[in-house]
Structure formats: C-alpha cells, structure tokens
C-alpha cells in the first residue's frame, strides 16, 4: 500500500497560497497587520489582534525557539521510517507559533531542550514544501 506510506501533503487554499509559495521559494512567509504592526499565524484575511483587514505578507527570519513538543511513538502514515519523531510547536522570532517537526538531530528528550534556538528548513513533499526546523546551534 504505497499510497499509505507517504506523509500527508497539504493543499493550499487561496488564503494560504502565499505561505506555501513562500515555502517553495525557501522563505517562511507569515502575515503582519499594517494597522497594528503585529504578526499572526495561521494565514487568514483579518488581523486577530485589532480586526483590521489591512494585512500584508512578510518574510520571517526563519529563526525560532522550541516552545513545546511530544515525541510520537505511533507513526503516522509515511513516518514509520523516521523512528520516534518530534511533533513540536515553535515560536518564531516574530512572536507567532506554529506546529512543525524538529529534524537533523537525534530525537531524544536530552537533545530537545525547550527554548533551544532553531532555524527553518524546507522539505519537498508532493508539489509543496513543508517548513521544518533544525537546531540552530549557539552561533546563530
């Protein structure tokens, strides 16, 4: 059942298309309210802070910290080959949070300290790219 072995592939909607286009271009794009200057996530046409519809897309730095996570021992389709994997929520430098996976490190509690610095990487998946995060090390 090869179809069962692929990871879930997101399908953009018109509201989220710029996010996924950004990921394909290697940029993490999020929205910012022009009226109140605050960022927000997930993509939508109205600022949740002040209600303004005057919102714009900006490119985030890609720097983040680890806010929280679990290590899943029950693999979702396509994840069985990864071993236990981290389903994480990261906080971007711009202040918004998003769910992701932590990659490019051994997935153990010891290796995954909350608030550790991370940076975005993009994984091709089907016809989109999915933002994942890797440890940024102390130099970043």
């Amino acid at each position: 059942m090869s179809a069962d072995q692929s990871k879930a592939i997101p399908r953009p909607t018109p509201e989220t298309r710029p996010f996924w286009d950004g990921a394909a271009a290697g940029e993490l794009r999020i929205q910012r309210c022009v009226a109140c200057a605050r960022h927000y996530f997930y993509p939508r046409p109205v600022c949740p802070h002040c209600g303004s519809s005057d919102v714009e897309w900006v490119t985030a730095s890609g720097r983040a910290t680890l806010y929280s996570y679990v290590i899943s021992h029950r693999p979702a389709p396509g994840f069985a080959g990864d071993g236990p994997y981290a389903i994480a929520v990261v906080e971007l430098e711009e202040g918004v949070r998003m769910m992701t996976n932590i990659v490019h490190t051994e997935i153990t509690p010891e290796n995954l300290a909350l608030d550790m610095p991370l940076r975005v990487v993009f994984e091709p998946r089907g016809d989109v790219h999915v933002p994942l995060f890797e440890p940024a090390g102390e130099a970043s």
């Binding site: 879930a8 029950r74 998946r125």
Partner: peptide, 11 residues
Amino acid sequence: LGQFELPYGTM
C-alpha cells in the same frame, strides 16, 4: 488541520 498539523505526523 490538513495544512498546519497533519503534515507533521499528528495522529
């Protein structure tokens, strides 16, 4: 969920 959770292997 399909865009912002399921791609990360949530079950």
